[in-house]
């Protein structure tokens, strides 16, 4: 029998997170397009950023790819393809640890840089600070799952529990019971990640959703017409009503 707390954490919260992430992102794209920016601080400091930023971002891309592989690819498929449990475990451990280390190291240097460079520090908002702390917590918890729970302390096959649970969420068949036996590090990582995803649309992290892949396909020089609305400003609801009333 699943306790109400487990039900809340592993069946309700994931959907809340998805709703906030999707809804928040749409809202931001619709109402605050001007606010969507990397808010790069490279202008202020370039030397540390040049190593740390690619380290962090590319590391994170690898980490994300690893998560997609680990969570979405069922165990049956990899064993069908002839990947043994040991091979998979070793691969995930080594690659995960490498990518994770790069990301954590990158983030550490970036946070140090942000702290130590007055101009960069001045450009840091409270929202940014919260984002970095949360990002750091999630990353460290994730590293501890890979390095501690799954490495030093032995082996934990998350593909029997967490992965089916995650797929169940996406398939609208949540099964919180699967999460009951999961080690604490994993639980902390997942809860932290849900908090991070809730913050995502409202923080600078949203720039990840604007990754400019279309650049590879479009012609070099963009031409645009001045457009129809020249010099006219569309009336808001209030002004339109006023106009109707002849005010």
């Amino acid at each position: 029998m699943t306790s109400p707390l487990d039900l809340l954490l592993w069946a309700v919260l994931p959907y809340v997170t998805i709703a906030v992430l999707v809804g928040g992102t749409l809202w931001r794209f619709r109402y605050d397009r001007f606010g969507l920016s990397t808010r790069s601080s490279q202008l202020h400091e370039s030397r540390l950023l040049r190593t740390a930023s690619p380290l962090f971002h590319f590391g994170l891309l690898f980490v994300a790819a690893g998560h997609v592989f680990g969570l979405l690819v069922p165990k049956s498929l990899t064993s069908f393809l002839g990947v043994s449990e040991e091979m998979y475990h070793l691969g995930a451990l080594v690659m995960g640890a490498l990518a994770g280390c790069a990301t954590v190291a990158g983030l550490a240097i970036l946070m140090w840089r942000r702290w130590r460079t007055p101009a960069v520090r001045g450009a840091t908002t409270r929202n940014d600070r919260l984002t970095y702390v949360l990002l750091g917590v999630v990353l460290l918890a994730g590293m501890s799952t890979t390095v501690l729970t799954n490495g030093v302390m032995g082996e934990y096959d998350y593909r029997e529990t967490i992965s089916p649970w995650f797929r169940g969420i996406l398939l609208l068949q949540p099964d919180p019971a699967l999460m009951e036996s999961v080690p604490l590090t994993y639980k902390a990582h997942i809860l932290g990640a849900m908090a991070l995803f809730c913050l995502w649309p409202f923080s600078r992290l949203v720039h990840a959703f604007t990754a400019p892949v279309q650049y590879l396909l479009r012609p070099y020089v963009v031409y645009r017409s001045r457009g129809e609305g020249l010099g006219t400003r569309e009336l808001g609801a209030r002004e339109r009503r006023r106009e109707r009333q002849g005010l």
Partner: peptide, 25 residues
Amino acid sequence: PSGAMYKRVEDGIVLVDQDRCRGWR
């Protein structure tokens, strides 16, 4: 990369669409 910068067809002025710029620099 974002396609935020463009050359205006009517007069050739090169502008940045502030709502599309994402600060890739």
